[in-house]
């Protein structure tokens, strides 16, 4: 697993629940409590262990946790901006999800995200990830946050290993302002 993914889990935990929880879970999982290095690769099993240790301490399931992490990542100002670059509307954003894997690899060598495929349905889209089911849960959290960001009302449901997305209302709220030129406008 790429260090950036592990770092995201770490940063989410520290920011949301504090350093003490992070240190306890990392120690129990056998990870370095000082934190993950972002440009290193780690054993994928360690990431799973980390997620289970965190989930147990929070009395949640790893999938619920993954969803929270997905939503949190989409709110990190610099990442939120990179995500907004994928499409000028929520529709365009969802349609461009298959590009995310390529974008990640283009920015950071070896940063392998799961391949996503999107197909149109009568109600909206079906998204499938070529990865462990937990990724779909992380993606559902991220999509919910992005729907808010674009100001659309979206129904996002995990069905088995698939994600069903529909948008009953495209102009639900104003969404958050976004300008491709000025990062400061995006932070707000």
């Amino acid at each position: 697993m790429h260090g950036l993914i592990n770092r995201a889990i770490e940063e989410f935990t520290r920011a949301t629940y504090g350093d003490a929880l992070w240190t306890a879970a990392a120690t129990a999982a056998g990870a370095d409590p000082r934190g993950f290095a972002m440009m290193r690769h780690y054993d994928t099993a360690l990431t799973g262990k980390m997620m289970r240790e965190l989930a147990r301490r929070l009395s949640r399931s790893p999938r619920e946790l993954a969803e929270d992490i997905g939503a949190w990542i989409a709110g990190v100002p610099s990442i939120r901006r990179l995500l907004r670059f994928s499409g000028s509307s929520f529709d365009a954003f969802v349609a461009a999800l298959p590009e995310i894997q390529g974008r990640a690899l283009m920015v950071v060598r070896g940063f392998q995200l799961p391949a996503l495929s999107v197909s149109a349905t009568a109600e909206g889209w079906t998204i499938v990830a070529d990865a462990e089911p937990i990724w779909i849960h992380a993606l559902s959290g991220m999509l919910r946050a992005m729907a808010d960001d674009y100001g659309v009302l979206a129904v996002i449901e995990v069905a088995g290993d698939q994600l069903q997305v529909s948008v009953p209302l495209t102009a639900f709220s104003e969404g958050r302002p976004f300008s491709i030129s000025d990062p400061l406008l995006g932070v707000a």
């Binding site: 990179l82 000028s88 283009m106 920015v107 950071v108 491709i180 030129s181």
Partner: peptide, 26 residues
């Protein structure tokens, strides 16, 4: 104050801007 609508979809401007931004963030 250009936006993505100011570029042709075939133009790689948005990709270049994305890379610029991603590069700065990294």
């Amino acid at each position: 104050d250009l936006t993505d609508r100011d570029f042709a979809p075939s133009d790689l401007a948005m990709e270049l801007l994305f890379l610029h931004e991603a590069n700065s963030a990294m």
